[in-house]
Amino acid sequence: MSAEWVILSGQHVDAVAVLSGAAEVDPDIGVRQLWDGDALQLVDAGGVVLLTLFQSRRLESTVDAERLLGRPLPRPLPEGDERLWWTEIHAAAQPPFRGTAEQIVRNTADAAGGTAVSRAAAGH
């Protein structure tokens, strides 16, 4: 089972943001590239998949993001124009991995200058 998250950011969430977000939590977290770079998977030292981040997609407007989320966007939004980058994440939802995965998501969003949003809050 996984928890669904989204990072909304003014820029593409790159590997540097992901690695810096993960390193703050645990410097021993490993990274695997999936589907020719369309996704990154973070695993703990025991090989447990903590989260899978999919390639960021550019949205034309905040209205598109609200439609996808099914609710108004959190405020404040990342700085920039109306267009946002949308990065989907599937994170471990079971204890004790859930807390680690959620912290990595939040740290990655901060490193990318964005906001982490749980999709569960929208009933997904």
Rank of each mutant, 00 (worst) to 15 (best):
residue 1 M to C: 10
residue 1 M to W: 13
residue 2 S to M: 06
residue 4 E to A: 14
residue 6 V to M: 01
residue 6 V to G: 00
residue 8 L to S: 00
residue 11 Q to M: 09
residue 11 Q to Y: 03
residue 13 V to G: 01
residue 16 V to F: 13
residue 20 S to V: 10
residue 24 E to G: 13
residue 24 E to K: 15
residue 25 V to S: 07
residue 25 V to A: 13
residue 28 D to C: 07
residue 29 I to M: 09
residue 30 G to Q: 12
residue 31 V to L: 15
residue 32 R to C: 07
residue 33 Q to G: 11
residue 35 W to P: 03
residue 36 D to F: 13
residue 36 D to T: 03
residue 38 D to V: 06
residue 39 A to M: 06
residue 40 L to C: 02
residue 41 Q to C: 14
residue 41 Q to N: 12
residue 41 Q to R: 15
residue 42 L to Y: 06
residue 43 V to D: 08
residue 46 G to A: 15
residue 53 L to D: 03
residue 53 L to F: 06
residue 54 F to V: 04
residue 60 E to T: 06
residue 61 S to A: 14
residue 61 S to F: 08
residue 63 V to L: 15
residue 63 V to F: 14
residue 63 V to C: 13
residue 65 A to S: 05
residue 70 G to D: 05
residue 71 R to C: 07
residue 72 P to M: 05
residue 74 P to S: 09
residue 78 P to V: 00
residue 80 G to L: 07
residue 81 D to V: 08
residue 81 D to A: 09
residue 83 R to A: 13
residue 89 I to F: 08
residue 90 H to I: 03
residue 91 A to G: 06
residue 95 P to E: 05
residue 100 T to C: 11
residue 100 T to D: 07
residue 102 E to L: 06
residue 104 I to G: 03
residue 105 V to H: 01
residue 105 V to T: 03
residue 106 R to P: 01
residue 108 T to V: 15
residue 109 A to P: 04
residue 111 A to G: 04
residue 117 V to G: 00
residue 117 V to D: 00
residue 118 S to A: 14
residue 119 R to N: 09
residue 119 R to P: 06
residue 120 A to C: 05
residue 124 H to W: 14
residue 124 H to D: 10
